[in-house]
């Protein structure tokens, strides 16, 4: 299971290494570590986000180990948006209310539009948009695509999906 954790470390040498130790001990597979040294909390601690895969039965052991070593666990849980997909839209993307198009995805609660790029060659010409949608799972990606297809049909936009999406 893929999980993420937000930690707060003391700003003293060796804390980051120490925070990773229980992942090794409990056979966690670390996917990414983001260390926000430049964004200290009002408490003077340094926020760190860790994404990892681990047997769920070990998560409490990891937490306990961290807390025993003075590391604050702010949040631990499933990484919400674990799936993502790229989609292109062609047509009057902006004038057909781009905000609404995005909101139709964002308002689901299980998916969000991240990363949007637009190309508008001329006033009367169709524009092209690239968007990346992140969602809580494969099924939710599939649902987001269905929503987008429906929006595309309503607003006369050509929706171009990636071939991998067909498998969902």
């Amino acid at each position: 299971m893929r999980l993420s954790m937000d930690l707060e470390l003391q700003d003293i040498p060796g804390q980051l290494m120490q925070s990773l130790e229980p992942f090794k001990k409990y056979k966690g597979n670390i996917i990414s570590v983001v260390h926000h040294r430049d964004r200290k909390t009002p408490r003077g601690t340094v926020p760190v986000q860790i994404v990892f895969e681990i047997d769920p039965s070990n998560i409490d052991n990891v937490k306990k180990h961290l807390e025993e070593n003075g590391i604050v666990v702010v949040r631990a849980g499933e990484d919400r948006f674990i799936e993502e997909i790229s989609v292109l839209l062609i047509g009057h993307v902006v004038h057909s209310d781009l905000g609404d198009t995005i909101n139709r995805i964002d308002s689901t609660g299980f998916a969000e539009v991240e990363d949007l790029s637009l190309r508008m060659p001329g006033i009367d010409e169709p524009s092209s948009a690239y968007m990346r949608i992140r969602a809580t799972g494969k099924e939710e990606i599939g649902t987001s695509l269905s929503i987008l297809r429906k929006v595309g049909a309503e607003k006369d936009l050509l929706v171009i999906e990636p071939i991998e999406a067909e498998k969902i």
Binding site: S86, L88, G91, R119, S128, Y130, L158, I160, E166
Partner: peptide, 23 residues
Amino acid sequence: RDITPEALNLAWERGYLIKLIGD
């Protein structure tokens, strides 16, 4: 018919091509 060079370019930048696929 509705594919634009801009769409092809956006796709390219993200590591994709646009192809007419039969399935």
